[in-house]
Design a protein around this nucleic acid. Structure first.
Length: 481
RNA sequence: GGCGGCAUAGCCAAGUGGUAAGGCAGCGGUCUGCAAAACCGUUACACACCGGUUCGAAUCCGGUUGCCGCCUCCA
């Protein structure tokens, strides 16, 4: 179907993607543990996989995309206790916030978005299989995974048990046979959520919910599993041990991991207090600019969030919308909905970039190159747009929109985009539109009388108000700086 | 200590064997009453360092230096 190559963490190289079932893709991505609001790092992961799924669909694949919510966990329990609410209330709140943030970022919903607590039966089933197959053992009311029993342990992260420094930073639980054994089921403690199980009341450990939900929805062997780089070890390593141990067959073909977001060259961390929340970023920047920024680096590389980088992303987005607006203007009102055309050469190049391990950075480069070419084309075209010229504009615009559909940008009409932008900025700056219009009208009169001194004085006044003037053939337009 | 990643012009960033996309910033120009926008040119003989393989390497191999991540919850 394609020549798509994907970097597979499991083999540390790019491989041609071969779906298990022709024409279909099953993909599972680790979603958030819902104990706090989402930060820009969550946004990157979600946006990256959103684009990957959109691209698969654009290529004609039928995609089953599963993204979970982990809604039972130590951190959730602790946080709920601090706030004096139930764990369910807490997770409901942050699931709601997750949707608010991701909807704002124009992220498409996954096919299935399961919650761990809705799949306790499946979790228990996986643990049960692990015990009966000799991969797990009971200790008190807990159940542990015995890492030494799983031959492939470490194959994803490239670690060897013998070489890791166990307990270097954390005290090892004495009930464990090996320090790297991890808990599958935790015995109930008072005041914590709990479920009945063959091993007594308790709750699932971290890792097991993903094995249970992914195999439940996608089968025991599926195509792609993704998440942030930090999940490679231990989370994904443990998932492999659980799923392959329980079912005795290969778990996942391709592992995809996205890199981190840094803030001004620093890792985001609680101690530095530099966690940037999505909802705060969206107060400052257009959601599509955030996407453009996140996608302007390759997904596996780190990306540094700075005001300058965001300003560039905003400027870049405006440039693309300005081009679209210009095309609309050039084609005139005769054109509507001519976008079913193509695909053309631009789309083909874009796909070539995306086929190379989802190289959105290169794809975005192509977009800007096209913007320049089309502007030049229209500069040269002059007044008379011939049939062929129009066809080229319509075709290329259709490709741009198609690309926008994969990257999740250009979802607004240019007019909407600029009007909204203007309104937002006016609101932020507290500028009076009527006053601006009056000054511009005054300046227009001065210009007609060739009273350049007055015209320039008014422009300076407006400039001082952060208003930028553009004189065009059709009249004067303005925008907020 | 173990595992992994990165180092490309003023800044950001693609590029994995044939002599280097794109964006931002600066400068000069076209256009404009002057600007802005757009376009053209330019800064740009830019690939951390040292060896090796090759007709040819930013790209492969070895080493050095620097930065970063994971090994603890983390997207």
């Amino acid at each position: 179907m394609t020549n798509l190559k994907i970097y597979n963490t499991l083999n540390k190289k790019k491989e041609t993607f071969e779906p298990i079932k022709p024409g279909k893709v099953g993909i599972y991505v680790c979603g958030p543990t819902v104990y706090d609001a989402c930060h820009i790092g969550h946004a990157r992961s979600v946006v990256v996989f959103d684009v990957i799924v959109r691209y698969f669909r654009a290529m004609g694949y039928e995609v089953t995309y599963v993204r979970n919510f982990t809604d039972v966990d130590d951190k959730i329990i602790n946080r709920a206790r601090e706030l004096g609410i139930s764990t369910q209330e807490l997770s409901e709140r942050y699931i709601r916030e997750f949707y608010e943030d991701m909807d704002a970022l124009k992220v498409e919903r996954a096919t299935v978005e399961p919650r761990a607590t809705d799949h306790i039966d499946e979790i228990i089933d996986v643990i049960d299989r692990l015990i009966s197959r000799g991969y797990a053992y009971k200790a008190g009311g807990d159940v542990f995974y015995a890492v030494e029993t799983f031959k492939g342990y470490g194959k994803l992260s490239g670690r060897r048990l013998a070489e890791m420094q166990a307990g270097a930073r954390v005290k090892v639980d004495e009930k464990k046979r090996n320090p790297f054994d991890f808990v599958l089921w935790k015995a109930a403690k008072p005041g914590e959520p709990m479920w009945d199980s063959p091993w007594g009341k308790g709750r699932p450990g971290w890792h097991i919910e993903c094995s249970a939900m992914s195999t439940h929805f996608l089968g025991r062997h599926f195509d792609i599993h993704g998440g942030g780089k930090d999940l490679i070890f231990p989370h994904h390593e443990n998932e492999i041990a659980q799923s392959e141990g329980a079912f005795g067959e290969p778990f996942v073909n391709v592992w995809i991991h996205n890199g981190f977001v840094r803030i001004n060259q620093e890792k985001m961390s609680k101690s530095l207090g530099n966690f940037l929340m999505i909802k705060d970023i969206l107060k400052e920047y257009h959601p599509e600019a955030v996407r453009l920024f996140l996608l302007s680096n390759h997904y596996r590389s780190p990306v540094d969030f700075t005001d300058q980088a965001m300003a560039e992303a905003e400027a870049g987005l405006e440039k693309i919308y300005a081009l679209l607006q210009r095309i609309h203007g050039t084609l005139g009102s005769s054109d509507f909905g001519g976008d079913e055309q193509g695909p053309g050469a631009l789309w083909a190049s874009f796909c070539q970039a995306m086929d190379d391990d989802f190289n959105t950075a290169r794809g975005i480069g192509l977009v800007f190159e096209t913007v320049r070419q089309l502007n030049r084309f229209m500069d040269d075209m002059g007044e008379k747009a011939g049939q062929e010229d129009q066809a080229r504009l319509v075709l290329t615009r259709a490709d741009l929109m198609r690309i926008g559909g994969v990257l999740g940008i250009l979802t607004e009409t240019p007019d909407q985009f600029f009007e909204q932008k203007k309104a937002d900025r006016l609101k932020r700056e507290g500028i009076d539109t009527a006053l601006i219009e009056r000054l511009i009208a005054e300046r227009a009169r001065a210009r007609q009388e060739k009273d350049w001194a007055t015209a320039d004085r008014i422009r300076d006044e407006l400039s001082a108000m952060n208003i930028l003037i553009e004189d065009r053939a059709e009249g004067t337009s303005w925008k907020v700086k």
